[in-house]
């Protein structure tokens, strides 16, 4: 008799307990479920989200294949790992309306960077921030024109050596961020100030003027952003030999992909003086924001804040100039 009672209790507990447990573990019924998938098999599901200024957006994240990570472009929110077979909950709050991009920060294949979605935030902010116009737009620069340098240093210029020369060689008071190091070198070379200096020493002065335009903190930030977002293609040493580079070239030589002619398909080699010293902050910045438009270089405009782009640009010069 007793055993039978006990069995009935067991059945009862099971029948009532299971749905109850399911409800309780889903602590947040109104949270939106967001699935991560490699870009080749669909990317984020759903690919666009909406939210309202000042209203928390709750998300439950999981991955359908490999490890991904969720981050919102131009926001201070730290990236959240999105793991297969696991649910992670997060709450977002926006104080500026606009069209945000959410994206994956863990490399999940050659098309990893295409794993992006949009997040439309509506409403009005107490204080509207107007975005600044990037320099390449203001100056109407042609980002796709090749920019070789006629002059190259015989060894890697060093800002420290330049500083040791004891000359004032800062860039013009309002930093002319559209000027290339090659032009700057020619300017300095023809100045009477550098009469007694060798060509290499003038290059050291150029390195110094680029270094004096940034800070150690900004370089450190740029280095970190570079390692996470760029090194897989451009290489940890900046030589354009990143681990993804071979796969990238393969996808780009697929038939049907229209290349207009002058693009380099291999990721740029930032240590190549001939091809970089003719560029400028404005060109690097423009390339990062706008991307290569079909060359395989992603566009980072919706991802990074203008400070982050500047940090990256400053760091890219360290492949040309020693500190």
């Amino acid at each position: 008799m007793k055993a039978e009672r006990f069995a009935w209790w067991c059945v009862l507990v099971l029948v009532l307990g299971l749905p109850l447990a399911a409800v309780l573990t889903r602590s947040n019924p109104e949270a939106i479920e967001l699935h991560g998938r490699m870009a080749d098999t669909g990317g984020w599901m759903p690919g666009d989200l909406t939210a309202q200024v000042g209203q928390p957006l709750q998300l439950r994240l999981t991955s359908d294949d490999v490890v991904h990570s969720f981050a919102v472009g131009q926001s201070a929110l730290p990236a959240i790992d999105v793991l297969p077979g696991q649910w992670t909950t997060t709450t977002l709050l926006f104080d500026q309306p606009g069209k945000y991009t959410f994206y994956c920060t863990r490399w999940c294949g050659p098309n990893h960077w295409r794993m992006r979605g949009t997040l439309e935030v509506t409403g009005t902010a107490a204080e509207m921030i107007t975005p600044t116009t990037p320099l390449y737009v203001a100056l109407n620069l042609d980002l796709d024109a090749p920019h070789p340098s006629d002059v190259v240093p015989s060894e890697k210029p060093s800002a420290a050596r330049g500083a040791a020369l004891g000359l004032k060689a800062d860039r013009p008071v309002t930093p002319d961020r559209a000027q290339s190091p090659a032009l700057r070198w020619q300017q300095l070379r023809s100045s009477s100030l550098t009469e007694n200096l060798s060509d290499a020493q003038v290059w050291d002065l150029v390195a110094l003027s680029w270094r004096s335009n940034t800070t150690s903190a900004r370089l450190a930030e740029g280095q970190q952003l570079y390692a996470q977002n760029c090194a897989a293609c451009h290489g940890e040493t900046g030589r354009g030999d990143g681990v993804i580079a071979p796969a990238l070239q393969k996808t780009l030589t697929l038939p049907g992909l229209a290349l207009t002619g002058h693009e380099t398909i291999a990721p740029s080699d930032f240590t190549d003086a001939r091809h970089r010293l003719g560029a400028s902050d404005a060109i690097f910045e423009g390339k990062i924001i706008r991307g290569g438009m079909g060359t395989g270089m992603p566009y980072w405009g919706p991802i990074f804040t203008s400070e982050q782009v500047q940090a990256l640009v400053d760091y890219l010069w360290s492949f040309q100039f020693d500190q």
Partner: peptide
């Protein structure tokens, strides 16, 4: 046995 071993792990496609 007793060697001091250093391993550099290089991921070439995904994490």
């Amino acid at each position: 046995p007793g060697d001091q071993v250093t391993i550099d792990l290089v991921a070439t496609d995904v994490v």
